[in-house]
Design a protein around this nucleic acid. Structure first.
Length: 507
RNA sequence: GAAUCGGUAGCUCAGCUGGUAGAGCAGCGGCCUUUUAAGCCGCGGGUCGAGGGUUCGAGCCCCUCCCGAUUCACCA
């Protein structure tokens, strides 16, 4: 919209006219500052601020957006919203002046405008804590009308919403508006941040080092996924946006750090869904001299702590379920879990036997699907959706885990676990493969899968091999999906509800 | 990528078997000095997602396309 005046709505035109009128009245519609003494929440929660008479009260100074207005001639109530909440303001012509009240407040202020109020705190007849305005300052004009949702408590004590800003497309595309008018959205994102902070503190207290590794990578690796491709002009070379940061973090373990972690935006060129956004966040952690059993213990402790810090309890309501993060979480070997749900025991089975079992279970098998992938399909179909409470699934087939160490005792398996919760994977971890000869062989197997048509199979990373050839200590590594975990911790149905700006097609 | 549902005023929605578009909130003009979905009187506001077709006439029927939600498929 290159904004010819005719394309503006009536309300936008009127607001632009008011903007000019403010200037003509000698009022700067966009002043630079205002001294705030209190937030709405402080005022509402501190009875000491309430004064019986105008003279006795201490003064407060608040600022925010005008959200509702009730004009009753020479006096009005309106509410302003600041970063902590909403508070009501009472303003009278005889307190702030005829000009300020009649011309500015009543005629030129709209819902959505920023204002500053100085005054004292009192309680109205109906008991609502309210700021009685003595000074009114204009702080910023909004020229586009904000949605005007209303909430009211009915006789049954239920909150009824009117005119909620509920169109999901508009909410995702105009998150700024969503945040202004839907307080729940704000809470969700605050929880997400608190979740990350809890994890960061937890890892810092363990002495692990937060690091940053490349997002633009000449060779992508560390996961099975299709990448985004880009190009560096000066070097005239292709680059990939990382799909994981595993291989770089392990290079740092080689370099002598005993514990490193990174909260990383990763990028996978896949479809969009309720559970998938092309860019997403995970935290990866690598700790030297530990194995995957230790890591299960670590994860339980950390996530239990997250639940407690967000909800004050290990129990979290998610959809129809109550999920309890209290440790210890059950640990079930993958093949045992599959046997329990399907009756088929996969231990020691050949590729052909597994493929025929999969067919008997109506698993869709495609050309180039390796044994590991087929087993993963069976697991994803029959087991994963049933795991609501947090559960560790352990000991994965070697074919689907090219970076994990072979199992100490179980042939054909690796020391790997996934944490499953609410029917979805939230973490993936293993005892890291540090045998460079074995690692090279696994990469070569991946290269073979790739040439057989699996475009998600890994490519050989010679520099990574060189690194671990210099020697890597035994190491446990984990990746935890931050978005998925945030969905659970905030009871959100879609990944878009825990991303400020989910990817959308252009308008 | 497939299926289903949806897109009408700034927001939330109604719109019958096809007959020239409505409500509440928001806005504008009034009245109103403790209201709270404030109230009362009056008024304005629309490329009905886009384009084509059928028809005397299309928000509504048909076709194509765009955008979204949900489910499925792939993936974390």
């Amino acid at each position: 919209m290159s904004n010819p005046e005719s394309s503006l709505s009536e309300q936008q035109q009127i607001r632009l006219e008011k903007l000019e009128e403010l200037r003509e009245q000698g009022i700067n519609p966009f002043p630079t500052k205002f001294d705030v003494s209190h937030y709405s929440k402080q005022i509402l929660s501190d009875d000491n601020l309430i004064s019986e008479t105008q003279e006795s009260g201490s003064r407060v100074s608040i600022a925010g957006r005008v959200m509702t207005r009730r004009i009753m001639g020479k006096a009005s109530f309106f509410t302003i919203q600041d970063s902590e909440g909403i508070i009501q303001v009472y303003i009278r012509r005889d307190d702030v002046g005829v000009e300020e009240y009649n011309t500015i407040f009543k005629k030129l202020v709209d819902i959505g405008d920023f204002v500053g109020i100085k005054g004292f705190v009192f309680k109205t007849r109906t008991g609502e804590i309210t700021v009685h305005a003595e000074e009114f300052t204009f702080l910023g004009k909004t020229v586009r009308p904000l949605p005007t949702p209303k909430e009211v408590e009915n006789e049954a004590g239920e909150i009824v919403k009117y005119d909620a800003f509920s169109d999901k497309e508009l909410r995702y595309r105009q998150r700024y508006v969503d945040l202004v008018v839907n307080p729940d959205v704000r809470d969700t994102f605050i929880k997400r941040t608190k979740m990350v902070q809890t994890m960061r503190n937890f890892m810092n207290e363990c002495g692990y080092l937060e690091v940053e590794t490349p997002i633009l990578q000449p060779i992508y690796g560390g996961a099975a996924a299709r990448p985004f491709t880009t190009h560096h002009n000066a070097l005239d070379m292709p680059l990939y946006l990382r799909i994981a940061n595993e291989l770089y973090l392990k290079r740092l373990i080689v370099g002598g750090f005993d514990g490193v972690y990174e909260f990383s935006k990763d990028f996978r060129n896949e479809g969009l869904s309720r559970f998938h956004n092309p860019e997403f966040t995970q935290v990866e952690l690598y700790v030297a001299y530990k194995d995957y059993n230790w890591m299960m213990d670590f994860m339980e402790k950390m996530i239990e702590q997250v639940a407690i810090s967000l909800h004050g309890s290990t129990r979290v309501n998610v959809g129809v379920h109550e999920i309890d993060f209290k440790r210890p979480w059950p640990k079930i070997p993958m093949y045992d879990a599959i046997e329990k749900e399907t009756g088929h025991n996969l231990y020691g089975k050949t590729d052909e036997e597994i493929e025929s079992i999969a067919r008997s279970l109506d698993i869709h098998i495609e050309e180039g699907m390796g044994k590991g992938k087929i087993i993963d399909e069976i697991f994803g179909e029959f087991v994963e959706p049933k795991l609501i409470q947090p559960t560790f699934i352990t000991d994965y087939p070697i074919e689907m885990s090219p970076l994990a160490k072979k199992h100490g005792t179980k042939e054909g398996l690796v020391e790997r676990f996934e944490a499953i919760c609410n029917g979805k994977e939230i973490a993936n971890a293993f005892s890291e493969l540090n045998d460079p000869v074995d690692q090279r062989k696994r990469f070569e197997d991946q290269a073979r899968l790739r040439s057989d048509g699996d475009d998600e199979a890994m490519t050989i990373d010679e520099d990574f091999l060189r690194a671990i050839e210099y020697g890597m200590p035994p190491t446990a590594g984990i990746g935890i999906g931050i978005d998925r975990l945030a969905m659970i911790m905030t009871n959100s149905e879609s990944i878009r509800d825990v991303l400020f700006f989910p990817l959308m097609r252009p308008e």
